[in-house]
């Protein structure tokens, strides 16, 4: 019984942490850069394969994850500075930009997926890492899972604190709450949006890297995570970072419990949650405004 409980608890924290990380990334890209990034999952896949490739070249998995950070940031930042900024210059209004940018991210999804398919093929890939287990309260838990748990929880909370405390975090919050007021108070809105897109890519990449430490990966893994991230973002309230943090853990725990009962039911459970939520509180858990 205790073993089951600890199993569910640790799995819930792992899944919840990973969901929180990817959802905060998506939420920020939408809330600040106004891009509903449908290719978010592909960045998770990219992070996973980058990490996997590095590990294959004898780089330590944790170091590989850290290396993903600058690489993913540059990819995200440059993507925004080139494609999305252009798009925002030619779109007459925010609403037009939102629909245009979503279409572009759709296109990007296919591009990234196919490039990945060429580079890494379609088979499952993976490596073994820290398979030993330790006993916690008498129940065995694999070290790699414990490590991912710690990282996932730490990254998601560290990111939240970064938003609350740092100067850049303040700019990000200001732009997400009122972009026109923010820029007239001296915030460089376009720059902040590009940085946010880069940070979103970092979070996706780190989540991908964490996933390689405990699971097999393949080049079509992204879509599933995109769907989950969108569900969490709607659950937490569009654009609300604390909402995504909370929503990620809630969905992670529910997913774990449902998985324990019958894995095929998890997506059904997620959609049920969304339907109930949209009926009860359409703005999401923490979506106060708009």
């Amino acid at each position: 019984m205790l073993t089951t409980l600890i199993n569910v608890l640790s799995s819930g924290l792992i899944m919840g942490g990973v969901y929180a990380i990817i959802s905060m990334g998506l939420s920020m890209q939408y809330g600040v850069a106004r891009i509903l990034n449908v290719s978010h999952g592909e960045f998770i896949m990219l992070g996973a394969f980058l990490c996997f490739t590095l590990v294959r070249s004898h780089v330590h998995p944790i170091l590989s994850m850290l290396l993903c950070v600058p690489v993913m940031f540059v990819i995200g930042f440059v993507l925004h500075r080139t494609i999305y900024k252009k798009l925002s210059d030619v779109s007459g209004s925010t609403a037009a930009f939102e629909s245009n940018s979503m279409l572009v991210s759709f296109g990007l999804m296919f591009v990234v997926q196919n490039v990945a398919l060429l580079l890494w093929g379609s088979e499952q890939k993976g490596y073994t890492f820290l398979m030993r287990s330790v006993k916690i309260l008498g129940s065995p838990i694999a070290l790699n899972r414990l490590l991912v748990l710690v990282f996932a929880v730490a990254i998601s909370f560290a990111f939240y604190i970064f938003l609350e405390r740092s100067r850049l975090g303040k700019a990000i919050r200001a732009v997400s709450q009122d972009p026109s007021a923010a820029r007239l108070l001296g915030v460089r809105r376009t720059r902040v949006a590009a940085i946010c897109f880069g940070i979103g890519a970092i979070l996706a990449g780190c989540a991908g890297a964490l996933i390689t430490m405990i699971n097999q990966i393949n080049t079509s893994m992204g879509m599933n995570y995109t769907i989950i991230a969108i569900i969490v973002v709607v659950l937490g309230g569009m654009g609300s970072i604390p909402g995504s943090l909370l929503g990620g853990f809630i969905l992670g725990f529910i997913g774990t419990v449902v998985n324990y009962i019958d894995p095929s039911l998890s997506l059904v459970a997620y959609y049920l949650i969304i339907i109930v939520l949209l009926l009860v509180k359409p703005s999401g858990l923490m979506g106060g405004k708009s």
Partner: peptide, 13 residues
């Protein structure tokens, strides 16, 4: 600097 006719305070701060 300026203020706005329709107040544009940051609501979550």
């Amino acid at each position: 600097a300026r203020t706005f006719q329709k107040a544009k305070n940051f609501p979550d701060m």
